[in-house]
């Protein structure tokens, strides 16, 4: 580390020339040097393992033997067409092995529903925190932070206790005399998964949305009010657009990981609520077909990435149109 990288930025060497270049290069090298341990972790434990997963997806499993010759069979199997028609939720699949496709669509739909629910639930809370809370703000923030840090497994498990056949809701309603026998439709279905996911992730987005609301310059709101905008108009024309980027990135932070969620469908999903993550887990354990599991996880990541890119491009397009219109 050199002791003048910092001061050089403004001092004698500030403008152009060899010295400025050298100082800047030195600064860049120090910066990257300080980052290197983190980069080593990211490369050795994220990039290389994902690379290994890619290689694995080109191999095949024959019983107990792993065939390491390169083949696209796993991917072909996922998209192979067949005359046998499988129907699911009114959709027809002409696939020889339709399970992954069905689970993928189902996971995307459930995750999307949970994401929308999470944003709709969290936004008013974040709004309240940013614009209404004046006293004990720090206490409110801590109170909303705690659930986010408490065990995900336990938050999901608690819904099993709440919704279960012998659970809190059923026994509560029965002891109140409102029902005679437990309601069976509460647990082990897609709705239970969506509710549980919404609950488990909602505390994840309140703070990011709050931060984007808190950053909004209050003088703009005052100006709009002085010029006669009503409260709802101020919300629509100032608060909502300015908080949108933060809200969207928070929504993506929920959508992307929940598509591949494993714990929630496993604990509260039952047979009807399984998602793609459960299939990946099965392939890596009981069904002993890691290469196919690797291919499915990569296709899942690919589909998510494409969907997110399409979504972000659409947003950019809408923004451009809105700017041209005004």
């Amino acid at each position: 580390m050199s002791d003048d990288t910092k001061t050089n930025r403004r001092g004698l060497f500030a403008r152009g020339g060899l010295f400025a270049d050298r100082a800047r290069r030195r600064e860049a090298l120090t910066g990257i040097g300080l980052l290197s341990p983190a980069l080593v972790v990211m490369i050795s434990m994220l990039a290389l393992p994902v690379g290994a997963l890619v290689i694995m997806s080109f191999w095949t499993q024959n019983g107990f033997n792993l065939d390491t010759s390169f083949t696209l069979d796993n991917y072909r199997r996922l998209f192979a067409r067949s005359d046998r028609v499988t129907e699911w939720m009114g959709m027809t699949f002409h696939l020889a092995y339709p399970v992954p496709a069905i689970l993928m669509i189902k996971s995307l739909a459930m995750s999307l529903m949970a994401t929308v629910a999470v944003v709709l639930l969290a936004y008013p809370m974040a709004y309240f925190l940013a614009f209404r809370v004046t006293r004990y703000k720090a206490a409110w923030i801590i109170m909303l932070t705690i659930p986010f840090w408490t065990s995900y497994l336990l938050r999901v498990f608690s819904w099993k206790v709440v919704l279960g056949y012998n659970g809190a809701i059923n026994s509560g309603l029965m002891s109140l005399g409102l029902i005679d026998k437990p309601l069976e439709f509460l647990l082990y279905n897609p709705a239970a998964v969506v509710i549980t996911l919404s609950h488990a992730w909602v505390s994840f987005v309140v703070l990011p949305i709050f931060v984007s609301l808190e950053k909004i310059d209050r003088s703009m709101l005052e100006a709009a009010a002085d010029l006669g905008d009503s409260r709802s108009r101020r919300f629509r024309r100032i608060i909502l657009p300015l908080s949108m980027p933060g809200t969207i990135s928070a929504a993506l932070m929920v959508f992307i990981p929940t598509v591949g969620d494993y714990v929630t469908p496993q604990l509260v999903g039952g047979n009807g609520g399984t998602m793609i993550g459960s299939l990946v887990q099965l392939l890596f354990t009981k069904q002993n077909n890691a290469p196919l599991g690797a291919a499915i996880s990569l296709v899942m990541m690919g589909i998510i990435a494409v969907l997110v890119l399409i979504f972000l491009t659409l947003i950019g397009y809408w923004k451009m149109r809105a700017r041209r219109a005004s």
Binding site: M42, P49, L252, M253, I256, P257, Y262, M301
Partner: peptide, 27 residues
Amino acid sequence: VLSMLMLPLVVPSIVLAVALLVIILRF
């Protein structure tokens, strides 16, 4: 670099888990 550092936040943990499993056991 910063977004790469934040990647583990968005990758589903099951993908992280199986990727690490593959490299640790097979490679």
